[in-house]
Write a protein that binds this DNA or RNA. Sequence first.
DNA 1: CTGGATGTTATTGT
DNA 2: AACAATAACATCCA
Length: 270
Amino acid sequence: MPELPEVEGYRRYLEATSLHQSIENLDVEDTKLLTTDQIILAEALHGAEFTGTRRVGKNLFIYTSKPDVILRMHFGMTGDLEYYHSSLDRPRHARIVFYFRGGFNLGFICPRKFERIGLVENVDTFLKSKKIGKDALEITLEEFAPNLTKRKTATKSALLNQSVAAGVGNWIADELLYQARIHPEKPANTLSPAEVEALWEATGTVLRKAIEKEARYADFPASYLIHARAWDTSPYEDENQHLLCPRDQSTIEIIKVGGRTTYFCPVCQA
DNA sequence: CTGGATGTTATTGT
DNA sequence: AACAATAACATCCA
């Protein structure tokens, strides 16, 4: 779930539920999830309140009432947030829990333990150290184009590189390539300026649509390739269970690009 | 039981 | 030094 649109949803959820409540306690079920020593983290957060957020790509930064305490969350492949009241309602896989004064809790849900949470001293310094580029929703065409075309790797692999544009994940990369009608394995350094612009345009429209639909894939436009993934009841299956292109009804191909499962239409993404 | 999963990173090689 | 390719990570679910 957590590509850029989902993380944006988590950010809004946290803002709507968890600001301005004093943190009384922190429960850590598995210290592997922490990027900051548990003692230091607990001490820094104790008595603090969340005051605001900032998302860059798939990273969620949370500001607190202590100016030098900034929390960063990364949701890995399956992370989530859940705000709840009774400790009896503790959600499954809530491996880190913030206990607020007043009895509400915020659970950091980590089914697969690929998620991470910890303090950062400075957001921009952190982003630079992790080579995280401009957020995919904010990057300009002038910034995006050279980031992409200086790579020799497959365009899909370049799109997944968080230093090119932060926040693009596996299904979004496929969707952008589909909307721009570009083969996922086309070397990024062979893209024409028109193709780069089409990808950049698709990035904005797809991400904005996904956020608007709260990342509920079934609600996405019928013209989106994402319906070919088995995540919702696909309207594009024929009698032979083939996945069909929304544009020309040809059979969607599934290949590996850079080790990642990739869906594309061999006809319109020649 | 097996294989694959929406992400990142360490490692190795170019 | 920068880039590229691949495996590994831990767990769940179909």
